[in-house]
C-alpha cells in the first residue's frame, strides 16, 4: 500500500508486536468493565488501557515515524504525559463521589467514615 511498504522488517516487527499487545491489553481492561461485579472493582479496569495501552501504542507510532520520516513526532510524548497525569485524577474523583453517594444512601458495602456519621466531604478533597 502506501508509506508502510517502506518500513524495513526490523522496525515492522516491533511495531506490530507493540500495536497488538497494546490493543490487547486495552481490550482486557475494557472487558474488566463488563466482567467485574462491583463498581469499586470496575474502577481498576480502565487504568490498564490508560497506562499500558497508551504507552505501547504511542511507542509503536513513534518507532514508525522515526524510521519512516526520520523525525520524532513529539505529539505522542505529549499524549503519554497527559494521559498518565490525568487518568488517576479522574478515577480518584470518581471513586470519591461514588463513596459519598453510597454513604448518603446508607449502603452497607462501604466502610463508614472514621469520625462520626456526618457525610461531609469537605475535609477530604484531595
Amino acid at each position: 500500500m502506501n508509506h508502510l511498504t517502506d518500513l524495513p522488517v526490523w522496525a515492522a516487527i516491533p511495531v506490530c508486536i507493540l500495536l497488538l499487545l497494546g490493543s490487547a491489553i486495552t481490550l482486557a481492561g475494557s472487558m474488566g468493565l463488563i466482567r467485574l461485579k462491583t463498581f469499586y472493582g470496575r474502577l481498576h479496569a480502565p487504568t490498564l488501557g490508560a497506562s499500558a495501552g497508551t504507552i505501547l501504542i504511542c511507542l509503536a507510532s513513534m518507532i514508525t515515524f522515526a524510521v519512516l520520516q526520520n523525525r520524532w513526532i513529539i505529539h505522542e510524548v505529549l499524549i503519554i504525559v497527559f494521559v498518565i497525569l490525568t487518568t488517576p485524577v479522574t478515577l480518584m474523583l470518581l471513586g470519591q463521589s461514588a463513596l459519598y453517594r453510597d454513604r448518603i444512601e446508607g449502603s452497607n458495602d462501604v466502610p463508614r467514615k472514621a469520625t462520626g456519621e456526618d457525610a461531609d466531604t469537605s475535609a477530604a478533597d484531595i
Binding site: 485524577v89 478515577l91 471513586g95
Partner: peptide
C-alpha cells in the same frame, strides 16, 4: 497528592479517601 497519583495510576489499587484529622 503524589501518593494519590501513584496509588491510582497502578492498576489494582485505587485511592478513595483521606481523612486529614485522623
Amino acid at each position: 497528592a503524589l501518593l494519590a497519583c501513584i496509588l491510582t495510576a497502578t492498576p489494582g489499587t485505587a485511592w478513595l479517601e483521606f481523612d486529614r484529622q485522623t
